[in-house]
């Protein structure tokens, strides 16, 4: 198995108390996130639900389509600044990329590239390629990656926000790594091969996908922040994502050979420092964190200063 909506895994990694309400990023739908993230009432959707731009491919598999194919794209304001924004709905087909879903994001990023000034926000919530439309989904991801680099080469910040149910898996993880900045919460997970994919292909000895703590230590938000894979860690709250996103769209998103050379150095160093380690706990200990075992249970307000002190700075060099 390669990339599929099954990659996102079933159970949430972090658990929220029941009734945490829509202020939780994790619990919110894509449209609730947009409403609460952007300046009030500012979101104007492109190809809105009444247009019914849906997937024509799901009927072949006797699956229902959805009015927006699992992604809302449009324009809004964030902290008074015009932004282009896309939000994936992890509860429809695991937020996976099909032909229509992918094309909406491709068009949005190309608009940002051509405007050359308006930042882009991508609210990831995806298991990767939608396998019922695997060829179209894979190619859409390739087109989006290219458009993101073209937009950034024109100086546009492209900011990814990750903290949804489906995580950010498969090709979604590759697009995320093309962004100029990433904001992640504890519940956010980034990986190419999800836990079930590794287990199916390599066996339970390689990766036990039912061991949720292992999933969390390997691809969860805290680990990604500590190794510098994501620059900003936030609490699972829409307000926290909003504050971080406002900061990130104000930063320089441009990419050039110097940025890539710095990334090469950053990634090379990571393999050299941590490449022989077996577990996230070993890496956190190597970073100098006094009591690595305490990290999983740590509330955000304790973890953030710890990560700032001991974590790799992943904000630049991407």
């Amino acid at each position: 198995m390669h990339v599929s909506r099954a990659e996102s895994g079933g159970d949430p990694v972090g658990s929220r108390p029941a009734g945490a309400g829509p202020r939780s990023w994790y619990e919110a739908s894509a449209r609730q996130r947009l409403d609460l993230l952007l300046d009030p009432g500012s979101f104007a959707e492109f190809l809105a639900p009444p247009d019914r731009v849906v997937s024509p491919h799901l009927a072949l598999f006797d699956l229902p389509h959805q009015f927006d194919d699992g992604i809302a794209v449009g324009r809004g304001r964030l902290g008074g600044r015009d932004v282009l924004v896309a939000a994936q709905e992890g509860r429809f087909m695991g937020g996976a990329f099909g032909e229509v879903h992918g094309a909406k994001l491709t068009g949005l990023v190309k608009a940002a590239r051509d405007l050359a000034s308006t930042p882009v926000l991508i609210l990831f919530d995806t298991g990767g390629v939608r396998l019922q439309e695997a060829n179209a989904g894979e190619l859409a991801i390739a087109e989006i990656m290219r458009a993101v680099i073209e937009a950034r080469a024109a100086g546009v910040p492209v900011v990814g926000l990750i903290g949804g149910r489906a995580g950010c898996y498969g090709g979604g993880g590759l697009i995320a790594a093309c962004c100029s900045a990433l904001v992640i919460s504890e519940q956010g997970r980034i990986a190419v091969s999800g836990p079930e994919v590794i287990e199916t292909n390599r066996g339970v000895e390689e990766f036990d996908s039912r061991d949720r703590a292992l999933v969390w230590r390997t691809m969860g938000g805290k680990h990604r922040r500590l190794i510098g894979a994501a620059g900003t860690f936030v609490d699972d709250a829409v307000a926290a994502f909003r504050a971080a996103a406002i900061e990130c769209i104000g930063e320089n998103g441009a990419i050039d050979a110097a940025v890539l050379a710095a990334e090469q150095e950053r990634l090379d160093t990571r393999v050299q420092r941590f490449g022989t380690m077996e577990d996230g706990l070993d890496i956190w200990a190597a970073l100098g964190i006094p009591d690595p075992k305490s990290v999983p249970g740590m509330p955000a307000e304790t973890f953030i200063p710890l990560a700032d002190q001991f974590g790799v700075n992943g904000h630049d060099a991407r």
Partner: peptide, 9 residues
Amino acid sequence: MSKRDELLG
């Protein structure tokens, strides 16, 4: 597809 590769990002 391995734990090590995903651990390293």
